[in-house]
Amino acid sequence: MIKVQNLVKSFPKRDGSFFHAVDDISFEAQDGEIVCLLGVNGAGKTTAMRVLSTVLKASSGSAEVQGWDINKSPQKVRENLGFLSGDTGLYNRLRASEFIRYFGRLYSLDEALISQRINEMADLLDMHEFLDKKIDFLSTGMKQKVSIVRSIIHDPPVMIFDEPTGGLDILTARNIVSFIRSCKERGKCVLFSTHIMREAERLADRIVMIHRGKLLAEGSLEELRDSTSEHDLDDIFIHYVNQTAMESEVLAHEF
């Protein structure tokens, strides 16, 4: 599971002030649940996920992945986490199997186990014909499959997907979507980010909306519909954006 508490990530600006890319966000994601981080481009989704996956350090606040604190035990967090993003690059000079094996070794898996997992996943995703080809020669769809296997080679309990379908055609994107569903079926805790409302509607058990680094709203689609009396997720999202804009205006008047 994932537990995020008052998470803040700021970047220094040139003039010495700070830009808060993630500004005091809290939410949770349970095992066997798909949670979607929804927001427009630049909302802070990617930054939040990078902090969760320990690529960036949190400025303040805390988060736990499978009970491990991201600040205190980053190594443990990484061991329990699979990460996949839409624009992940691959090592083009390696063969597909070598690429996956490399990551398996980084997770300290023994060779037999790696081979076994590669075999299982290749059966599942129909990859046998290109496992021994250099990645350079693979199609986008094949590369995406290699990335999927790479992200799950260590069978992590938590999966994080950062805009996983970004830039993919409809067929390749479908692979990813069904992969996300299968993760849930296997009882994994899944967090994925997107700016596409339909994707969130279709996949997510719960939706966490963020805007300009701040949390807008959180809940299942039903809950969000009830509290806004809007039906479409688009409308719900805009409802919340307008509401916060009004609130901040009121605040500005009061002070």
Partner: peptide, 17 residues
């Protein structure tokens, strides 16, 4: 080169310091 090819992040989220 890893930055250019966008492979660095993949490496950083793997279980290695």
């Amino acid at each position: 080169g890893e930055k250019e090819r966008k492979t660095l992040e993949t490496l950083l989220v793997a279980a290695i310091g």
